[in-house]
Every structure is written in structure tokens, then in C-alpha cells.
Amino acid sequence: MYSPLLVKPMRDELTGIGFRELTTAEEVDQWMAEKEGTALLVINSVCGCAAGMARPGVRLALEHPARPQRLATVFAGQDAEATARARGYFADIPPSSPSMALFKDGELVYFVPRHRIEGRDAEAVAQDLRAAFDQYCA
């Protein structure tokens, strides 16, 4: 496991733009229990191959007028219990991190797996998210 000191700036990148960090299974269940409206869950990660573009991509996307009403994040490889519980809400999708799940009225409507972030820049990641926000959050 990486040092908390190393990981903190990666957590702060999301909490600083309004994400609620979920660190226990109970917190995940409570957050998921609120079904009404739209919600974005980001599975954060240290992985430099993709996470370095995922977080800035999310930040850019959230500047869009259409955006999810609720934002939360779990940190893969750091908060194992919370991450496992979060993945349980979309258990038929192979686990990957970073990844992003958009819910509408409690139903998963859009998912960005790690391989759709790798090798792309933040703007490209944001473009995909904006398109999903326009479709489901407008």
C-alpha cells in the first residue's frame, strides 16, 4: 500500500471539487441508498497510467452546466472495504481503477472503465463525461 502522504494529494484532487470520500462499506451503502437524481462515483487510483488523467478529466467535466447532483469517491488499493462494497453495486462489470460510474435514480447508466482513460488526455476524458452528463443529467 502506498504511503498516505503520497496518496493525500490524489484524494484532495477530488474532495477539493466537491466529492465526498467514502472510506467504509457503511458510508458506501448510505450514499448508494439515496436513489433519487443523478450521482457520479469515481473509483480513484494511484495508477499513473490512467488516474493522472482521470482526476483532471473529471474536474473539467464538472465545469459543464449539466452535471450529476451527487459526487462521491472511493480509493482503490487504499480503502479496500469501501471499494469492494462500491463495486458490488455494479458487480457484473469487471473491476478496474480508475473508473467512473454514473447512476440515475439508483440505476447504473454509464460506466467508464480504466482502459477508456489510459493514454488519453484530460480533455478527451472530460468530453466523454460531458456527453454522458448531457444525456442523463440535463
Binding site: 462489470i93 478496474s96 472503465p113 482502459h115 477508456r116 482513460i117
Partner: peptide, 27 residues
């Protein structure tokens, strides 16, 4: 696979390069 990813069957696999006809990013 392109939409959601894959469920891994092997932690690590080495493929003989002579058998490989293409390599491209899944993304």
C-alpha cells in the same frame, strides 16, 4: 470488452511474438 473491460483469467501471460499478428489499445 471495449465497453466494460474483461475478467482476468491469467495474472501474467507471455505470448510468443512470432504468433502475434496485431497489438492495439483496447481503448
Amino acid at each position: 470488452a471495449a465497453r466494460f473491460g474483461v475478467w482476468p483469467e491469467h495474472r501474467r501471460l507471455a505470448i510468443d511474438r512470432q504468433r502475434v499478428t496485431s497489438i492495439r489499445p483496447l481503448g
